[in-house]
Amino acid sequence: MLTPLVANICGFAGMACIIFAYAYVTGNKAANPFVQHGVNLAGAALLTVSLLVNLNPASLVLEFFWASIAIWGLIKAARSKRA
């Protein structure tokens, strides 16, 4: 079982991942989609861990969609790399 402290640490780490991914894609002309979407997915997962302890239903739904879009981006990047 997660303690509130560990959940908060996960939440702050997830927030840092998402902010990093946004800054990364904003600051690079040719950002690597695997980095962008992978870090966003990690951020969403970490924030979800936090939200399971500190329940906020609206934010939990947001993280579900954030993770879904990141997975979609990773799939698209993998398909384009194969082509």
Rank of each mutant, 00 (worst) to 15 (best):
T26F: 11
T26S: 15
A45M: 11
A7S: 05
G43V: 00
K29P: 05
L47N: 13
A23Y: 02
V39P: 10
F64P: 01
L2M: 13
L74E: 03
G11D: 07
L62P: 06
R79P: 05
I19H: 06
P33A: 09
A45F: 03
S80R: 13
A44Q: 06
L55I: 06
L52S: 10
V61H: 08
L55S: 08
A23M: 14
G73Q: 01
A13M: 06
V49W: 14
A83M: 08
N28K: 08
K29D: 11
F12L: 11
T3E: 02
S68Q: 07
I19L: 15
F34G: 00
A67M: 06
A78H: 13
T48S: 14
R79H: 10
G11K: 00
K81D: 06
G38S: 04
K29M: 06
G14V: 01
Q36R: 04
R79M: 12
C10P: 04
M15K: 03
V6L: 13
F12V: 07
A45W: 03
H37G: 09
G38D: 02
L46G: 00
P33I: 02
F12Q: 15
S59M: 13
T3N: 11
M15S: 09
L51Q: 00
L46E: 06
P57M: 04
L47F: 01
L55H: 12
T3A: 11
G38E: 05
A67V: 08
P33M: 03
L60D: 03
Y22G: 09
C17D: 07
S59A: 15
A30K: 09
A42E: 03
V35C: 01
A16F: 02
V39L: 07
V61F: 10
A58R: 11
R79K: 15
V25C: 08
N40E: 07
N32S: 11
L5W: 08
A7K: 00
V53G: 06
Q36V: 15
A44W: 01
V53W: 01
L55C: 07
W72N: 07
